[in-house]
């Protein structure tokens, strides 16, 4: 891990501890919990998309598997939510192996289509397996998580907990990126054949990273179920997968920090738009949330056209460019 990354982790930790002191209203804290869950899923997806160069349009399926594992195991079998979380992650990993082994042989559009289909199938299972999942009626009264005897029932306590998980996940991901595996993954992204010829076990690495990203999503799903206490198939549909990919792409696929920033921005955006519409409501300008998808699409389009590396890379290039420009002017002024 580079020094810069440690610095970044510390900044995130400081912001997380400061936020509940700055924002009194629990409502905003609640939104930031959902933001943390999106961050967690997006980090896993970023490892898969940005570092290994494989696309997945079915990640909400893993998110849902985690949520349903927690829901089913805690409510019908009365397991501890922690064991359910672990079991969910193991099951998601198993599913990732089963799906990944054949589908990661595919490339580009074919892989996207295979994962899209996988996501749709899992969603149908959630809807149709009524005896197991409760079908469209979902599962209610999912217990809260408890940590050292403290029940994480308030938004604030869950906020600290979920962001701690995000920081942990980030720490792990950063370490991975700067290890032999991470360099191997980047080699695969560059050229699979070249990486293979250099002794990188491409097939194995791809499966491993797919499993890892599934586990990230599954943990986020389990946390979602424990936080909301109710799940139905709604939040785990294909559109959510698309939204996750959008978040990763907006932030910057090739940088785990980018995924984090993209997830934060796009999770807060709808609330921001609704606040804005409340604010302008008095002047007679009203905003219709039906346009949310339009705005997401517009943002994605603009990013792809003008900042293909995502926001983070775009900002970095801009800074570099302006530093160079300033340096050039200085040099000219002195000479």
């Amino acid at each position: 891990m580079a020094q810069r990354d440690y610095f970044g982790l510390i900044i995130v930790a400081v912001i997380v501890t400061l936020i509940p002191r700055l924002i009194e209203n629990e409502y905003y804290i609640g939104i930031l919990v959902f933001t943390a869950l999106n961050c967690l899923t997006c980090m896993g997806l970023c490892l898969l998309m940005g570092y290994a160069g494989q696309i997945s349009l079915g990640h909400s399926a893993f998110y849902g598997i985690g949520a349903y594992a927690t829901g089913i195991l805690t409510v019908t079998l009365a397991w501890s939510p922690w064991i359910a979380l672990g079991a969910g992650a193991c099951f998601a990993a198993l599913v990732a192996v089963v799906v990944g082994v054949p589908s990661l042989r595919l490339k580009g559009h074919y892989l996207a289509m295979a994962t899209l289909g996988f996501g749709a199938i899992v969603h149908i299972v959630f809807v149709a397996a009524v005896d197991l999942t409760g079908g469209p009626n979902g599962i209610a009264r999912i217990p809260h998580l408890d940590l050292f005897g403290i029940e994480l029932s308030t938004d604030k306590s869950f906020f600290y907990f979920s962001w701690a998980v995000v920081i942990l996940g980030l720490f792990f991901a950063l370490n991975l990126i700067h290890s032999r595996v991470g360099r191997g993954l980047r080699a695969i992204h560059g050229s699979q054949d070249a990486a293979g010829s250099l002794g990188v076990n491409t097939a194995r690495y791809k499966i491993q990273i797919f499993i890892l990203s599934a586990v990230y999503a599954s943990v986020a799903g389990s946390l979602y179920a424990s936080f909301v206490n109710y799940i139905d198939p709604g939040p785990f549909d294909v559109m959510h997968s698309v939204l996750l990919v959008t978040m990763v792409a907006v932030g910057g696929m090739h940088n785990i920090w980018g995924a984090l920033i993209g997830a934060v921005l796009l999770s807060i955006l709808p609330e921001f738009l609704s606040e804005l519409s409340d604010y302008f409501g008095g002047v007679g300008i009203s905003y219709n949330p039906d346009y949310d998808m339009l705005i997401y699409g517009g943002i994605l389009l603009a990013i792809m056209l003008f900042l293909p590396g995502g926001l983070v890379e775009g900002i970095r290039n801009f800074l570099r460019f302006s530093f160079n420009a300033v340096a050039k002017i200085k040099r000219r002024a002195f000479s």
């Binding site: 609640g30 939104i31 959902f34 469209p136 009626n137 109710y230 799940i231 709604g234 939040p235 709808p270």
Partner: peptide, 28 residues
Amino acid sequence: DNTRAVNAVKKLIQKNKVSVIIGPSRSG
């Protein structure tokens, strides 16, 4: 949307300090 509904009800309770809530529209 479930997540939005949770956020909306929290907003009504904690930000707008309403004394009673009407809705949501869908069972989920």
